[in-house]
Design a protein around this nucleic acid. Structure first.
Lengths: 110, 110
DNA sequence: AGTATAGGTAAGCAATAGCTTACCAGTCAA
DNA sequence: TTGACTGGTAAGCTATTGCTTACCTATACT
């Protein structure tokens, strides 16, 4: 049993804020302490802590203590619901692409 | 020049609300009038109108008037930023999957 | 013309989000 | 043990979100 968000909505809502997406982008490069994360923002450290809390609640990150710091760790699997929801529409892209190609290859008279 | 959201954040924020994702799911099946869309919700019609407005502003839907009704139309291309952002992490899934397979095929002693 | 239908907009509201400053506890180093 | 450092939490504020009801316009129907 893995720690998960209460529901998928939390994940969608969590990535709704640009600062939180940026935090995930940072963590994708490797685990980071709060201090290092906060160093990339102009907002206060507590504000960053609060964003981390949202990500934690959504299960998108985990934390591990190392001495007096806490390293946050990205859990990409938790993006699954978003991935799935988006994936559902892949065929739209494909369909349109196919139609476009067909159009282009058939004379391209406009 | 296609009508687009002012910025990508609008798209992420727009899909942050479950009702709006559901509306997009509905519209993916075909264009729908406001009345039909609202019929799937318990909230008032104006509330639905407001959600449609958010989707419109994000460029995720378009509207076309047909007599006294307005048909809303899904524009999946506008999900591009989300798709791209998520796509960035596909390798994580792949990497972990690969690691897991390797582990499983090498004795599976735990 | 008169009435019904579709749907947007305004006003008002309660709840939530996002931020700040102030404060606290735990860890480390002198 | 005294001080510096990391980082969470509380309180308080403002702006935004999500909803409601009331109202308006435009189209259609008879």
């Amino acid at each position: 049993m893995v720690a998960t968000a209460k529901n998928d909505s939390d994940v969608f809502a969590a990535i709704g804020h640009p600062a939180r997406r940026f935090i995930l982008d940072l963590l994708a490069e490797g685990d980071r302490s709060v201090k290092v994360i906060a160093g990339h923002f102009r907002m206060s450290r507590p504000a960053v802590s609060q964003h981390l809390r949202v990500l934690l609640d959504a299960g998108l990150v985990t934390e591990q203590r190392h001495g007096r710091e806490r390293r946050y760790h990205f859990v990409p699997e938790q993006l699954g619901p978003v991935r799935d929801w988006i994936g559902q529409y892949e065929r739209f892209w494909d369909d349109r692409l196919r139609r476009l190609q067909k159009k282009l290859s058939s004379g391209n008279k406009e």
